[in-house]
Amino acid sequence: MSIRLIAFDLDGTLLRNDKTVSERTMKALQRAADQGIYLVPSTGRIFDAMPEVVRNMPFVRYAITVNGAAVYDAAEKRMLYEADLTREEAEAVFAYTKEFDAICGCYQKGVGWMEETEFEQLPAYAANAKILEMLKSVYHPMKNLQKEIFSQGSTIQKLIYFFQEIPERDRKLQETKERFPNLEISTSLPNNIEVNSAGANKGLGLKCLCDHLGLRLEECMAFGDGTNDLAILKTAGRGVAMANAAMEVLEAVPYRTLSNEEDGVAVEIERCLEEN
């Protein structure tokens, strides 16, 4: 069956480690667009936090953002789908995680926020310099975040926790999944935990977009590397794991491509275009 939509995660997938898009990948995306294939970023980021090189791609109209909590039509500047954490859910997570040796950020209405004192600690919790640069551009400091955040809205799109120690992150990840079985708990970076509502994952976002566009899921291909990509990789007709993907992803997804540093997305798109 011909592929009519290609969804791709950003960090660790489309983007190289320096957060750029290779020339080969750009050419492969353009060739796909020229054949009428929808090209859809599928990211844990809010739309405005996507790299400019991605937001400015002339063939990108739709985006699955915040792990599927928001499906956005950039041409019409409107949301096609939203699935936020309720205040009750967010406050329960805040209460449970208050003893975490981690700093917390949150997305609300397409804006990133972080407690002022924790924002100042970002250099100690960012995995590398490029991620630190990205986080500083995404989050805005706020005093008394857990109290004041709800003065701006009654819901939250996503909560994100950043750890210094990977073993500690791994322990808390399993504990959080057990404590909140009705929420979406995932990771997108080696040192983070992401908490979304039950109605928010990239697979549900893809289903929503396909319904909107009149496409079948079998006509979709998706790329990813993190556990927040598992839902879309399993939902799309052809889910492709990057060679650098988390072990949980590699074990769950039958299709593989090269790493993000080796133009893995471009390689698979080129193969897809030949098959089409």
Rank of each mutant, 00 (worst) to 15 (best):
V253T: 03
S259L: 03
N244I: 03
P181A: 01
M26Y: 06
A92S: 15
A75S: 10
N244T: 04
E165A: 14
A198F: 13
P58V: 02
E274N: 07
L273P: 04
R169C: 07
A236W: 04
S197Y: 09
F119E: 03
E89G: 08
V253S: 07
N144L: 11
P51H: 03
S2F: 08
N196A: 11
G237M: 04
T43M: 09
R78S: 04
E116L: 11
M134R: 12
Q146A: 08
K172S: 06
D170W: 02
I185S: 03
A74L: 10
V71Q: 10
R4P: 02
G224V: 00
C220P: 00
L10W: 01
T176G: 02
A127Y: 13
Y139V: 13
A245G: 08
D9P: 00
T155G: 04
Y255V: 08
G36V: 01
E270K: 00
E23V: 04
R78K: 15
I37R: 10
Y161I: 08
V71E: 10
I160L: 14
N192F: 00
L159A: 03
M50E: 10
M221F: 04
G68T: 03
M134K: 12
G205K: 04
G112S: 12
V93H: 13
A124I: 07
C104H: 07
L29I: 07
K27C: 08
E168F: 06
A49T: 00
P167E: 00
S22M: 02
K172C: 12
I160R: 11
R256F: 09
V71L: 01
T43W: 05
L173P: 02
A83K: 03
D34M: 03
C220A: 12
L213Y: 13
R55G: 07
G205Q: 01
C208R: 14
Q164F: 09
G214R: 12
K158E: 09
Y107K: 02
G239A: 06
A127Q: 11
P141V: 02
T13Y: 00
G203A: 01
L14H: 05
